[in-house]
C-alpha cells in the first residue's frame, strides 16, 4: 500500500519536473533579444520544412474529408428534405471542429515527428554540443526557428484545410448530387459567423500549433541520445500531442460555447 502511494507520488513529481523543464526550455528559447533580419533564412527553412512539405497531405485529406462530409450530410439531410442546409452543415463542421483537429493530428504525424527525429539525431551525433563549444547557442540557432515555424504553419495549414474541405463539400453536394448552388452558398453564409466560427477555429489551431511544436522540439532535445531513444521520443511526440490536441479541443470548445 505504501509502495503504491510512493509510486503515485514519484509519478506526480516526475510529471511536475518534466513540465517545469519543458516550460523553462520554451521560455529560454522564445523569450530572447529579437535579432530579426539576420536569422530570417533559418525561419524560412523551418517554415518550408513544417509548412510547405505538409501541404500535399493536408490538401489531399481536406479534399476527401470535405467530400465525405458532403456525402454523409446529403444522405442524412435528404431524409428530412432539407438538402439546402448542406452548405451550412459542411462549413460549420469543417470550420469549427474538423479543420483545426484533423490538421493538428496530421501536423503532429507529419511535421512533429520529423522535428523530434531531426533534433534527437542532432543531439545523438553531438552536433548540439559542438555548436555550444563554438559559442553558438543551440536554443537560438536550432530550437527558436523551428518553434516559430511550427507556431506559424499550423494556423496557415488549418485555413488552407478549411477552404479546400469546403470546396470538396461543394464538389460533391453541388456538382455531383445536384444541390442548388445558390442555396448551398447562401445558407452557408447566413449560418457561419466570421468571429464566432472562423476566428475561433483559427484560435484553436494556434493553440494546437504551440502545443505540438513545443512537444516535438522538447522531446527531441531531451531524447536519450541513442537510436532507441530517438525512436521512443518520436513515438511520444505523436502520441502525446495527439492526445493533448483532442483533450484541449474539448476544453477550448467548452470555453468558446460558454460565451467566453
Amino acid at each position: 500500500m505504501i509502495t503504491f502511494v510512493q509510486k503515485v507520488g514519484r509519478l506526480g513529481l516526475s510529471i511536475c519536473t518534466e513540465l517545469g523543464r519543458a516550460s523553462f526550455f520554451l521560455s529560454k528559447s522564445v523569450w530572447r533579444k529579437p535579432r530579426t533580419g539576420k536569422k530570417l533564412h533559418l525561419l524560412a527553412h523551418a517554415l518550408f520544412n513544417s509548412g510547405v512539405l505538409s501541404l500535399p497531405i493536408i490538401i489531399v485529406s481536406a479534399l476527401f474529408i470535405g467530400m465525405v462530409v458532403g456525402l454523409q450530410g446529403f444522405n442524412i439531410l435528404n431524409k428530412f428534405a432539407v438538402t439546402s442546409a448542406l452548405g451550412s452543415m459542411v462549413a460549420l463542421s469543417v470550420v469549427r471542429e474538423l479543420g483545426p483537429v484533423v490538421t493538428a493530428l496530421l501536423f503532429a504525424g507529419r511535421a512533429g515527428s520529423a522535428l523530434t527525429a531531426e533534433i534527437g539525431l542532432m543531439k545523438a551525433t553531438e552536433q548540439l554540443d559542438a555548436m555550444e563549444m563554438m559559442g553558438v547557442d543551440p536554443l537560438g540557432r536550432i530550437m527558436l526557428p523551428r518553434l516559430l515555424g511550427g507556431f506559424i504553419s499550423l494556423p496557415l495549414l488549418t485555413i488552407i484545410f478549411c477552404a479546400v474541405a469546403i470546396y470538396g463539400g461543394n464538389l460533391i453536394g453541388v456538382q455531383w448530387l445536384g444541390v442548388d448552388a445558390g442555396a448551398f452558398w447562401n445558407n452557408m453564409q447566413s449560418s457561419v459567423d466570421f468571429r464566432l466560427d472562423v476566428m475561433n477555429g483559427i484560435i484553436k489551431s494556434a493553440v494546437f500549433g504551440v502545443v505540438i511544436t513545443w512537444m516535438a522540439v522538447y522531446q527531441g532535445a531531451s531524447a536519450v541520445p541513442t537510436a532507441e531513444g530517438i525512436s521512443h521520443a518520436t513515438t511520444r511526440t505523436v502520441v502525446y500531442s495527439s492526445l493533448i490536441v483532442l483533450g484541449l479541443d474539448f476544453v477550448l470548445t467548452a470555453m468558446m460555447m460558454g460565451g467566453w
Partner: peptide, 16 residues
C-alpha cells in the same frame, strides 16, 4: 495560399 484561403473563408463562407 493561406491568405487566399482566409479571404475565401471571410467573403465566401462567412457573413463578414
Amino acid at each position: 495560399l493561406a491568405i487566399a484561403g482566409l479571404v475565401m473563408l471571410a467573403f465566401q463562407v462567412s457573413n463578414l
